[in-house]
Structures are given as structure tokens and as C-alpha cells.
Amino acid sequence: MAAESAATGGPQSALFQRRRGRQLFEQAIGWVLFLCAAVTVLTTVGIVLILVIEGLQFFGDVSPWEFFTGTKWTPLYTNQAFGVLPLIGGTLMVAIGAAFISVPVGSVTAIYLSEFASPNVRAVLKPILEILAGIPTVVYGYFALTAVTPFIGNFAEPTIFNAASAMVVVGIMTIPMVSSLSDDALHAVPQDLRDAAYAVGSTRFEVTTRVVYPAALSGVIASYILAASRAVGETMAVTIAAGSTPNLTWNPLESIQTMTAFIVQVSLGDTPHGTIEFRTIFAVALTLFVMTLVMNVIAARVTARFREVYD
């Protein structure tokens, strides 16, 4: 290796050999490793550049005012309208509906795992929840379309594609996210505090709900935000189950379209690159990116505050 040749070929100092080759080799390694880490930064830069460049070209043709306040979204029709609100509405409806499942269910799952379950029960339940988290979203989409929608049909009259079935499966798929991140937050609450609460005569229920859960609250809230962010960015399940009808409605039994589903719709079609129709997906993706970024940053802030208290 380079180091060895330098050691034998270099000037022979009495005690310390000057290993220039070895030093250069070490430096080169350092730079290569730095470049590996820099790939992640380049990825972010690339994403932002692409979204902004194509997005700016889009906003050259369509005013941001029309885009963000318009209530009609028909960019692929002859009678074009570029109001993104129906897509945002559809996205938020699914995310909020999903949160009604994932937040309560994920929270009690986390509380059970952290405060009640024995180590053996934990050892069984955690991998099962990991499997739930690892099921591909296209499978959730299949299940929503072929099982959840017919099931909802027992009580109501949904259209074949409907927001409700998407809410259910997106809610379920984000349960593990809420439960595992909340579980981490609950676990991080020092045992000291539980002891203190028990020592004044609290029952386990009171220890959990009045001391541990409030103490972990910021971590728990961060898990809710991250789950919502995941739901907003979720693509395949909503594309398959919720349909492709941009529709500013609050009726979950109707077909809607989310931002992600629209992007899929355009890229599956034959819309030529460089047209305004194609650029809509960058404008929509930019909006989506900013929304999820804001949520993730808020979650990170909230978590950081939580750490300050206990570290």
C-alpha cells in the first residue's frame, strides 16, 4: 500500500519516519468520505433547484395568486384552470382523517407498550408493528380499494373511489410511526418521575396520564406532526383509493384528488415535457415539499425542546 512504500522510500530520520505517502493517502480518504456525506447535501440542493426552476417557469405563466386561491383545478382540460386549492383540500382531508385514527390508536399503543406491557409482550408487539410499517403503500391501496370501500358500503354509499377508504388505510399505516416515536418519548421520561408520583400514592393510571404523558408531551406531539407529514406525502394508497377528481369537498364518501395523486396522474399520461401542463407537477410538488418541510422542521424544534429538559 501507499503507506508502506513511503515508509521504505522516504528519508530515514533517526526515530520518526516521515511518511508523506501515507499522509497523502489519509488525506485522500478523508476527502472521499466527505464527498460521500456531501451527496446528501447535493440531493437537497438538487431537489430545491429543480422544483424552484421549473416552478418559477410555471409561475411565469400562471400567477401565484390564481394558483393558491383558485378553487378549480383543470390543467389537463382544454378549459384550463390552475387553482390548487382542491388538491390541497383533498390532501388535508385525507391527512386529517388519517390523524383521527393514527393519533388516538398510536398514542394508546405507545402508552401500553411503554407503561404497561411486560418485556416479553413488547418483544412480540414491536416487530409486528414494524411489519405494519413496512407493508408497501401500494398494498394498502389495494386493500383500500378491494376491502375497505366495500366495507364502508355496508353503512354508507361511497363512490368506488372515495377519500374515506384512503383515510382509513393512511391512518393505519401511520399508527406505527406515532406509536414508535411516542414510545421513545415516553421511555425517555426518567424513572425518577414515575417513582415520585407513585410515592405520593398515585395509581399506575395516574402516574401515566398525569405525570409521564405530560412530561413526554413535546416528543409525543412531534410524533403526531411527523405522522401528519407522512400522510401528506403519501402517494400510492391515495392514488389508488381516493381517485383523481380534484374536488373541494368535505364529504369523505366522494372521490377527490391529492397533490401526490395528481403528480402521478400526469406522469403516467403522455403530457410532453416543457409544456405548462407538465410544469404543473413541479409547482404542486414544490407546494408539497414546502408543506412537509415546514411540518418536519416544527417537529424537530419541538423534539429539541423536549431533549433540553431531560439531558
Binding site: T43, T44, L51, V264, A285, A300
Partner: peptide
């Protein structure tokens, strides 16, 4: 770099598709 990595993990996968 570290913050960027955790933010990237939260970017919707479809956005990576556009990249």
C-alpha cells in the same frame, strides 16, 4: 449535514422521483 440528512428522510418519496 446532519440536520440535512434528517430532513431528507422526511421528504415525500414522490419528490425524489421528480429529482
Amino acid at each position: 449535514i446532519q440536520i440535512n440528512i434528517s430532513n431528507l428522510a422526511g421528504v415525500p418519496s414522490i419528490v425524489f422521483g421528480l429529482l
